[in-house]
Amino acid sequence: MWIRMLTAMLAATLLLIALLSANPEYRLFMPGLLEGAVLTVEITLLGAVLAVFMALIAALAKLYGPLPIRWLSTTYIEIFRGTSALVQLFWLYFVLPQFGIFLDAFLVAVLALGLNIGAYGAEVVRGAIVSVARGQWEASIALNMSKAQMLRRIILPQAFTAMIPPWGNLFIELVKSTSLVSLITLADLTFKAQQMNQSTLKTVPVFTLVLLIYLAISLTVTIAMRLLEQRTSRGLTRGRVA
């Protein structure tokens, strides 16, 4: 039901983009914007990989690490959740070079956004792990599993299902925050839009198209996550006895 409505919205968005592109006023901008969209998608994908990786590490460290590791991971989570993504981006971009560390803008973008979303993701992962029923841990102990075996085989697979909806929201936040990279000179969708707006002053076509393209990307992510959710929850609720 919800997936259908989202799919309809996505179809409508794509149709609208196609219709608008038939108009030369709009078509003019499409090639440049699509180029920017490719960069936006690249940063989103790499950022998502980093975010998931960091979230898992930080959550497990905060839950099960020795004290210093726990502090370290709490500090990471609090700092990256407590300051804004743009501040983090600027800090890595402007301040690191003053310490003699020169990173490519693309790398800074992926790092900043991945670390930022990863910090929120860590709390999602942690929440999902602690919400797995206590009996599952106890049954694993009774079967004499090691802590690592319990986590890998019993707890994380169950937590995974609970994590999908909040991760869906985080990935949307990630898509949206990629627009910030335009402020550190990366030619993403937002950067291209700004550039075209300044050079042609055709504000309405440019920003309408950009909004629609972002909408299409976000809706695709949302639909993909909903489908994933349906697939994984099937094992847990398959033909539940009435």
Partner: peptide
């Protein structure tokens, strides 16, 4: 063996 079974649902 537990009162609440505690089978692995997945």
């Amino acid at each position: 063996v537990f009162q609440s079974f505690n089978l692995f649902p997945h």
